[in-house]
């Protein structure tokens, strides 16, 4: 093996490590840069002196952030939305998955319902028909428009179904022998055994629901009831085309807006995801693979 360590392979290895280190760094850099700006003084941040480390470290922007009631209002709406959606979705996905995981002998129309779900994932009427239906149902400006359309996540249901199917049939049979009915089997045997996949799907759903902003943008007109990402969309994509006539206008608008406060808001909006990420990471590789395993 010593003979293998020629100069060529060593150089190739160094190049490889350098390339991957660069890629990792570029994944992290925008976030660090943003964080550094949020902790810097507005003057230094505006003048572009901040790269990786904060200049004139201070917490001014976070103080301002805590006084921003609109930000916290929408933050709270997002938290509420994520909590309620994930709680309800946890149970109805579990309930949906159990019958679908039965054999066709036990549940004859299983495949029909499976296809009902899969078809809805692949095809939809498009944005306009969806918008018109929501309007007709009177869900405009309602908190529930943020929750209801996100409850059935077909991908998550399929993950749970596949996991249920991988649980040994013998367990099911011996429970039935001992007199366990379907309710008992579903909630006392399958649910506790499936905690890994249920954790995966719940974490995925937290991220999806937290990051979703279209529903709030389309269906909610009151500023005090939009979720956080919709609020962020309004301040980030802030350049209103009607106000801008020239490059000078852009510069002027940019200079009035508070860069450090904006950075603090962006960071705060990402924070829940970053807090969930370490847990998520433990699950998602196995989670993705669960979905692709064929029986």
């Amino acid at each position: 093996m010593v003979r293998n360590q020629t100069f060529g392979t060593k150089a190739a290895e160094a190049l490889l490590i350098a390339a991957l280190a660069l890629i990792s760094f570029s994944s992290l850099f925008p976030i660090i840069h943003n964080l550094a700006i949020s902790f810097s003084s507005p003057a230094k941040a505006m003048a572009g002196f901040v790269t990786v480390f904060p200049k004139e470290f201070n917490l001014e922007s976070y103080k301002k952030l805590f006084e921003d009631s609109v930000f916290f209002q929408s933050f709270w709406i997002s938290v509420k939305r994520v909590g309620i959606t994930c709680f309800i979705s946890f149970f109805i996905s579990l309930l949906m998955a159990y019958p679908l995981s039965r054999s066709r002998r036990e549940f004859k129309l299983r495949d029909v319902y499976m296809w009902l779900l899969i078809f809805s994932m692949m095809f939809n009427g498009g944005l306009i028909p969806f918008y018109l239906i929501i309007r007709q149902m009177g869900l405009m400006n309602s908190f529930w428009v943020l929750v209801l359309p996100m409850l059935v996540n077909v991908f998550n249901v399929i993950l749970i179904v596949n996991y249920f199917r991988s649980i040994p049939k013998e367990l099911d049979e011996s429970a039935a022998m001992d007199g366990a009915g379907p309710w008992y089997k579903a909630f006392r045997i399958y649910m506790p055994l499936s905690m890994p996949v249920l954790a995966t799907t719940t974490l995925f759903l937290i991220v999806t629901v937290w990051n979703e902003f279209m529903l709030g943008m389309m269906f909610i007109n009151h500023e005090d009831s939009i979720p956080l990402q919709t609020y962020m969309q309004q301040i980030v994509v802030r350049i209103d085309p009607t106000l801008i006539k020239s490059i000078e206008d852009v510069k002027r608008l940019a200079s009035v807006s508070d860069k450090t406060l904006g950075a603090a808001k962006i960071f705060a909006s990402m924070l829940p995801i970053m807090l969930v990420y370490p847990f998520l990471q433990r699950f998602f590789i196995s989670g993705i693979m669960l979905g692709s395993v064929k029986e």
Binding site: H33, N34, W210, N211, Q229, M232, V236, V237, V276
Partner: peptide
């Protein structure tokens, strides 16, 4: 796992 909105915000400042 970051939202597109956050990514756009990060890009603007970069």
């Amino acid at each position: 796992f970051l939202s597109w909105i956050a990514v756009v915000g990060l890009t603007y400042s970069l």
